[in-house]
Amino acid sequence: MTHADTSTESAKSPGAAPELGLAGLLFAAAFTLALFVHPPIYEFQGRRPGADDVLARVLGDGRRLFANHCYLKADAYYHSGYYPTIFDDQQGHQTAHMAADAGVVQEQNTGEEGQFLGAVTDWIDGHSRKHFPSSHSHLDEDAPGGKGAGVEREILPWLELSANLDPQWVENYTVGAFWLRKLGKQAEAERFVRLGLESNPGNVELLFELGRCRFDAADLERARNIWEQGWVRWRAREEGRPAAEQNRFTATQLLLHLALVESRLGRREKCVEWLTRALPIAASPDQIKKRIEEVRGGLPFEPIQSPALESSGKDAHH
């Protein structure tokens, strides 16, 4: 029997056609199932960005520790390396200075921030201090390298890394966005905030920051809409809580910015309305009362001593 004969016989064998048919059917079923399953999975991943992240898989919840380390590293860079260790007095560094200076968190530092090393105890200590940064400075003010040289950019890699490690930590995005805006990188700042909003949909702090991005871009109407949305979210989130537990810092910022944007848009009544709303929750109501009187008297609303407002005000003027 030749080889050709054998092939013809196996092709004609009664079991071949059903096997091929079954394989075809399975292939078609698998293809249909893939088409059916893929969009929901894609959508699910979209709701949880980073779900397929290698770092998240490898480190698990431990990545939050690393995120915290990176965040502190960014603050240490903000001080050009002059930063307390666990052995030093950390009273003056309970809130990261880069965040407090950005106006995105309420500062809770006490004591002298620049004196955590204390007095020189002996000659070893005195000599040792000549080998590491031992004087207080901030990158945007008086750091080695010079003010105005844009050296604030050096904190950004650590903030991005921290945000990658812990996407739910909102402060990374708000602080990063503030310094990006200060460096003139408005588009990157907005992109970074939107990345944060993907992981934290409807977050009030991020909405506030997004509004600041639009405000800087002179898109006042949109900034107002975003801040109004933030105010609605804040009320939904915080109004049911006891007064002591409410995040009034963010609410005050939102309301003052809403007043600012209404003032810029020439709507004096709305400006007064937002300021009046800020009165019961603001830390310094007397200042706000004074501003209300000024606005009613025809003066434009100007930023109140707040780094956040000051920055936005300055940038908007530019």
Binding site: G81, H127, P133
Partner: peptide, 15 residues
């Protein structure tokens, strides 16, 4: 005090 010989922070931050 071996840490005296480690001046990396001064170099990194351009002191």
């Amino acid at each position: 005090h071996l840490e005296w010989f480690d001046v990396r922070d001064l170099i990194i931050h351009n002191w």
